[in-house]
Computed example of a mutant assay.
Amino acid sequence: MDETLGKALHRWRDRLSPLDVGRTSRPGRRAVGLRREELAELAGLSVDYVVRLEQGRAKSPSAQVVASLARALQLQPMERDHAYRLAGLLPPQEGTISTHVPAGVQRMVARLGEFPTGVFSADWTLLSWTPAWAVLMGDPGTRTHVERNLVRAVFAAGHGRLAAWPVLQDDNALKPALVSDLRTALVNYPRDRAFIDLVEELRSTSAEFTRLWDEGTVGPHASARKTVVHPQVGEVICDCDVLTVPGCDIRLVVYTVAAGSADAEKLEFLRVANGLRADGTSPSGPNLFSTP
């Protein structure tokens, strides 16, 4: 029997436990693995489109769609490449930025549901996030793929930003740190045309980015204290820690607050007001969301 993308997606969906994506497997659940609705929500796709893919009626998914499905299904690198080939696409090449999030990292993030956590690629594009992140920062699902790049949002003219409302940093170190981090990453991904285009775009549209880039500073993005100006609860002061994953260049950005503080009370109010459980998971869907 010929292998198709639809058959592979169904097989991979069946083997993935709801617990792997932070979803409770309730008594009486008859579905083996993830339901199509759950995969669609995880991948940021419509249920109808997932059905058409599995049935072979949608035959030409984009590279971004395949990448999002691979993340949602927690595929291993060889399986991810197989999915690309089944879709008639070339797998990501060496020297290009990967949007693949290893299964172990996804399981870890799924269990970090209490904390607002975002998963970023090496060029600082937001790949996936917890419901607590969407509650604190605003839902990234309303942003396009281009708008979910943090560097582009920070240096954009006007009021463009990744978060739906202001996120302030006291020491003004964010912009130099992001530029330095990009310069370091460019050495690792010299063949990534989209990454090169991003740097050229920013150099042509932002004098501040150009100045910082030309200074030649090299170094990673570091942890910082940030203030989120939330429309419901006002200022929330958070510690923002940036964790890197060796071997895949994925960055986890985690926001935390001191237990028992006024900021913790504000986050708890937002959790309850938005219908999240105590562990930060949503009763209506998976714990980790992403969009193509």
Rank of each mutant, 00 (worst) to 15 (best):
G260N: 03
E215Y: 11
V47D: 02
E3N: 10
T24N: 00
L86K: 09
S284E: 15
Q74T: 00
M78I: 13
L75P: 04
R183V: 02
A173V: 12
V65M: 14
D123Q: 12
L198M: 12
R271H: 05
H221M: 15
V253D: 03
V253S: 06
L89R: 12
I250C: 10
L276M: 07
F195Q: 08
R148V: 08
E147M: 07
S261L: 03
R161H: 14
L136Q: 08
G118I: 05
R15K: 10
T227D: 03
E235T: 08
P91M: 11
F209W: 06
S180F: 01
W213S: 02
H230D: 04
L5K: 04
L39P: 09
G138I: 01
V101Y: 06
V50G: 00
Q64P: 04
T184F: 09
R203H: 06
A278T: 07
E41T: 11
D192Y: 08
I196E: 15
R107T: 01
H221E: 14
G285S: 03
I250W: 06
R152W: 03
R13V: 04
R191M: 12
W129V: 05
F269N: 08
L178W: 08
A122S: 13
D197H: 07
V229L: 14
L53S: 06
L288E: 03
A259S: 13
C248Y: 11
T256P: 02
V32I: 09
P246I: 08
S17G: 03
D192G: 07
D2R: 15
A194I: 09
R183Y: 09
S60L: 14
Q55V: 06
P220F: 06
L162R: 07
E3D: 14
Q93G: 14
V228R: 05
V65F: 08
V65T: 15
P91C: 11
S290A: 12
G118N: 09
P190Y: 08
P220D: 07
L73A: 01
W12N: 04
V233W: 04
Q93C: 13
P61W: 05
L174A: 02
V233L: 08
Q169Y: 13
V228P: 02
G141A: 09
F209M: 07
T184K: 14
L5Q: 04
E79I: 09
S223N: 13
Q169P: 00
T291K: 15
V146Y: 15
D239A: 13
P246R: 11
P91I: 12
Q169I: 12
D214L: 10
Y255E: 00
L39S: 01
G28A: 00
H82D: 14
D20V: 02
E268D: 14
D239F: 10
P116Q: 03
A134F: 01
T117G: 01
L16A: 00
K226V: 14
L276F: 00
M137T: 10
W165H: 15
A83Y: 11
V228K: 09
